[in-house]
């Protein structure tokens, strides 16, 4: 294979990873903010955290909207990360493609389940 990294890298063409790089960081920031929002609500709850207090955090409409966005962001973030792992370690094309398809099905299924739980509250 010809050398295509370092100073020999071909820098023309599409899909050089900037979009994936950027979307992974933006979704990460959203999830960090979500973590702090949930954490703050848990910490500022008076008394022990039982079912009422815990479910109450996710019952507010703004929290549902935020959580919904975070579920989508999470699936997108994990897709970029798992695709990187498959691309780095799995060389046979048939296996890599199969694992990528499995990842998409897994993530879409999990996102659907999480969204169902969220919006029936």
């Amino acid at each position: 294979m010809s050398v295509n990294y370092g100073s020999k890298r071909i820098v023309v063409g599409a899909h050089y990873g900037l979009r994936d790089w950027l979307s992974q960081r933006i979704t990460a920031i959203l999830m960090v903010l979500f973590t702090f929002v949930v954490l703050a609500q848990v910490l500022f709850t008076r008394g022990p955290i039982g079912y009422e207090a815990w479910a109450g955090i996710f019952a507010a409409q703004w929290m549902k909207v935020l959580t919904f966005a975070v579920i989508i962001a999470l699936a997108w973030h994990v897709w970029v990360g798992m695709r990187d792992i498959w691309m780095d370690y799995i060389k046979p094309v048939w296996l890599r493609l199969s694992l990528q398809v499995f990842t998409i099905v897994w993530l879409v299924g999990c996102a659907g389940w999480a969204i169902q739980v969220l919006w029936r509250l």
């Binding site: 079912y51 815990w54 479910a55 389940w113 999480a114």
Partner: peptide, 17 residues
Amino acid sequence: MFLLLPFIIWLFDTSVT
């Protein structure tokens, strides 16, 4: 976390439903 995602959502499901 990717592999245990269903378990995480199960925890979310049962803890809030």
